[in-house]
Write a protein that binds this DNA or RNA. Sequence first.
RNA 1: GGGCAAGUGGUGGAAUGGCAUACACGAUGGACUUAAAAUCCAUUGGCCGUAAGGUCGUGAGGGUUCGACUCCCUCCUUGCCCACCA
Length: 799
Amino acid sequence: MYPFKEIEEKWQNYWQQQKMFSVTAQPRRKKYYLLEMFPYPSGKIHMGHVRNYTIGDVIARFKIMQGFCVLHPMGFDAFGQPAENAAIKNKTKPDIWTYKCIDQMRQELKRMGFSYDWTREISTCDVSYYKWNQWIFLKMFERGLAYRKAAEVNWCPSCLTTLANEEVIDEGCWRCGTKVEQKKLEQWFLKITEYKERLLEDLTQLKNWPQRVLTMQTNWIGKSEGVEIYFRLKDTQKTIPVFTTRVDTIFGATYLVLAPQHYLVRELIAGKLQEKEVLKFIEQVTKRTKSVRSSGEMKKEGVFTGSFAINPVNEEAIPIWVADYVLMEYGTGAIMAVPCHDQRDFLFAREYNLPMRIVITPPNSQLTQSPDDLKEAYEGDGIQINSGQFNGLPNQQAKIRIAEWMENTGIGKIKTHWRLRDWLISRQRYWGTPIPIIYCPKCGIVPVPYEDLPVELPKKAHFTGEGGSPLGKIKEFVNVSCPKCKAPSIRETDTMATFFDSSWYFLRFCSPHSDSAPFDTEEVRYWMPIDQYIGGIEHAILHLLYSRFFTKFFQDLKMLDFSEPFQRLLTQGMVLKDGAVMSKSRGNIVDPDSIIKKYGADTLRLFILFAAPPETELEWDDRGIEGAFKFLNRIWRISKNLKEGAPPELIRIMHKTIKKVTEDIEEFKFNTAIASLMEFVNAIYQLGADRQVFSNLLLMLAPFAPHLAEELWESLGNRESIFKSSWPKYNPQQITEEKVTIVIQVNGKVRSKIEVAPDISEERLKELILADEKLKRWIQHKPIKNLIIVPRKLANLVV
RNA sequence: GGGCAAGUGGUGGAAUGGCAUACACGAUGGACUUAAAAUCCAUUGGCCGUAAGGUCGUGAGGGUUCGACUCCCUCCUUGCCCACCA
């Protein structure tokens, strides 16, 4: 067993003392900015971190050996709820708890031997960092991109505090179990919707992002083109606007549905028979928390308002309902229901016995004319029926014609709707960046002047979990004089969502100590954009979208001259155990630290790369790790047993391996790169290696198992770190084959193989095939219909 | 409900139109050892066969092709993300 513990400590200290991975911009050299999503400092790293950061480390070390000037930084996304909750539980302070966790986590990362430039470490909870959050907020405020608006929060009436969605358990408060209510609060929003077109269009630039992330972002932004139709309220001049993407189904609209919060509802029911019932229904619905309302098997519920609307295309009076499946936040908060051609409307109509009408039939099979026979809504394309002057048209054509007709007659208007909402950043919490705003009774909302930044988090807060944000209870913090008129004023006590912090940290890494700006323009010009970003798929939407938004904002401020921060994106798969994601509640966690103690970091790194390709899920197997450990031990033993001169056969294998490993790493196929290293080691074992062959093995091993590679490199007499050497190159002449094996098939089945010169003529090959003894029994007496030859590979005889 | 992945030996996986199961784990047998561990060697998809060999086989069914794990269609299963988006 090789002494991994001593070796790993030795080289980790060496790298640190030599500042091996500290870099400065060197404009004449090619740069490579590699970034992995920084962790929340929970104190312990988990296998997901190990996988993410090992993948990054292999690429970083590989690029270093290829001669790139590599920026590979690490930091901590350190604000957030867990610190505050820990403070409540353990009677400590969020900052003390967080910094302790950071120290622990940094140690664990160092024990993995990652090649970070630790001189660039940042923590988002440092004043020197969050000061710039405030600066950015003020810039956004100046441009009208930060604004205040009322929004609902989860509210615990017992603790008198707001709760995050994940703190609401079964509709109750996680601390006291009291039923959670919805409460409206004035909060801060960022106008990300102003960037919606650019956020959508620029996705086409991201050629090296996984397709599924691009799709998810596209869906999230959710551009949909349709028509806003104006339904007149019966017996009045009032209109109800309704948005639809299926204007072709307008003749099948048999009722309208309003969201419970719709502004017209109360007016509609005033003095009607249904008033009481509707009000009761609305009360019921609004009490429900958002998480319940959107939780899946929700039954669609609704009530009739007693009012009717006029369908503008056929003057039909149709009933108006209120139902919980229509959302105030999307479209106009009202829909036209077409039960025959929308499954949700179909279910609702069946439930409440509402009328239905088929207006589109599938082109070939005649859809039954009676809606009673329908088992589900028909949402596909077809021919218009029951649609007045549009009968007989294919529905896609009708869509355009009806829309134009509506525009001309003023019945409706062609409109584009977006799913993307503005971004709510206010949190009624302590452990976050204070929003730099002051409320003056005379001047109103007043931004904190730039020269007064930072607004520091006061140290003396108390953490009880009750009575709202701890900041609000600190008089010295809250009571200030207005920066404009000096009148006694109140400070904003909300802090920013932590996604704000992580939306620009990658820029900060370029000049982490800059105290005159969030980042230094010259440094950013050299390092950005990020060449490779690596992280979990769970951040496919929000974090990446917000970072893209910030980048575009900085571009508008002329602080950046590009619009997309991440050129390439790699989303690594989850680490599973027994077929399920590792989690505390499942009790299937494998602690990386215990593996390091038993086998060392090199083994852990090697196994996690070998067990699966980076993008797929990885099933953890305690036995598999033994294999990686054995492999490293094998190399250790070989190093003690080198020979003079290596057989030419081994030299050829070496060149082939260099080619394969280089190509595989470039395509992030680490598992097969390691497999070919194993094959190479097996060949060395059999044939016996000399120093030159073994040196090349070490060079290729170095990104994967850097400690062992360094140690053995030194034992060969090298004075400098292996990472000062360049990546080995293969000699193309050494990998050309003298002979190639041609597989011969008869009717697609392998029947024989022959060895021939690579440049053999087709005619000569044909002669050889027809002369082949083994083939005789398969082609006897049968006429040869065809012979397909794939050069250097295969021949297929069709008989 | 929508979107996106994935489905291959006992297990993790390899092969992206051309020899299915590379590499590794596990298992079995053997060598070394007083013994064990470690190490080394051999075997290891199913079925038929003493063997040579044959035959079936990549979730299921169909299609394209000289040839399909790979491409197309339908379905099933699992995972992930999002979710009443009109």
